[in-house]
Computed example of a mutant assay.
Amino acid sequence: MNGLLLTDELVLLAYDDAGANRLGRPHLDYGLAGAVLLELALAGRVEVADKRLVVTDPTPIGVPLLDEALATVGDGRPRAPKDWIGKLAKGLPDRVLDGLVDAGVLRRESDRVLLVFPRTRYPSPTGAEPAAETAARHRMRDALVGDGPVDARTAALLTLTGAVGLDRKLFRELPRERVKARLTEIAAGDWASAATKKAIEEMQAAVMIATTTTAAIAVTTAS
């Protein structure tokens, strides 16, 4: 597999130019788990049958992050996609960030807030938006403002950012109703097989359930 994974693109979109996570935790964690499952679906390795995620092809893809997830899903009993989100989310942000740092796309900066609280940020080496992030933004924006066909990976990335609520941060300049209508149009488009599209819809729903449930628990606890 060539180029960045959906996990890489989601992290780049979630971190601002100062290297801070504007999506928050555990939203990013769940989003990344969803991204891993979306990659497996796009690669034809998994699909959803009877509302359970099943492995249809156990052949390794050649990317450790994806192959480990594929093996985990294949070794376990069939579960609903939402049940895999929490299981696959653990440690994902650090792993993806480490990979982007090793590749030179981001750099790691550690300091302390008020000289007490440790903080780690991940800005780009130049201090400006990474080129890969800019490319992802342009690809997504072109899909939203256009009316033509959309490739499968862009459709999946739009689905993913919508599931974690990142779309509202990324495309504030676009009319919200237009974005909503275009996302519906893209979802209905002919960009993937029926099985793959069904799997992606289920992953989106699973991520949304995970993040919404977490938010509800936080509100309840605070009250």
Rank of each mutant, 00 (worst) to 15 (best):
L53S: 06
K51S: 15
E133A: 15
T184G: 10
L37F: 03
A132K: 03
G19H: 08
R178L: 12
R25C: 00
G86S: 10
E47S: 13
E129T: 14
P81M: 11
V46I: 14
D94K: 12
A69V: 05
E173S: 14
D111R: 12
P130F: 09
T159N: 14
P123G: 10
D75W: 00
L13V: 03
V179T: 13
P93R: 08
A128I: 00
A192Q: 02
L166Y: 05
L13C: 10
V101W: 03
E201M: 03
A89E: 06
L38C: 11
G127W: 03
A218Y: 08
I217D: 11
T221R: 13
L160P: 04
L6S: 04
R172S: 14
G76N: 10
E9C: 02
V46N: 05
V11C: 14
L157T: 04
K51W: 04
M203C: 14
D83S: 14
G74D: 12
K198V: 00
L100D: 05
E173K: 09
T213D: 13
V105N: 13
Q204N: 06
S193M: 03
A103T: 01
P130Y: 08
V46Q: 09
V96F: 07
E202G: 01
Y30M: 07
N2T: 08
M203K: 00
S110V: 10
T134W: 03
L92K: 03
I61Y: 01
D75R: 14
L42V: 01
D16P: 01
L53F: 07
K180L: 10
A155I: 04
K197F: 00
V73H: 06
D83V: 11
V150K: 08
T134P: 00
G3I: 02
P130L: 11
A218N: 13
A195L: 06
V73A: 04
L65V: 13
S110K: 10
I217C: 05
T220Q: 11
D190C: 02
G19N: 12
E173R: 12
L106N: 08
R139P: 00
F171S: 08
R176N: 06
L37Q: 13
D190T: 05
G3R: 02
G146L: 06
L88F: 04
R153C: 02
L40T: 02
L115S: 15
V105Y: 08
L32S: 07
D111T: 12
T196L: 03
E177I: 12
P125K: 05
Y30H: 12
L32I: 07
R22W: 00
A188S: 09
P60S: 07
R137L: 15
A131Y: 06
V116T: 15
G3L: 10
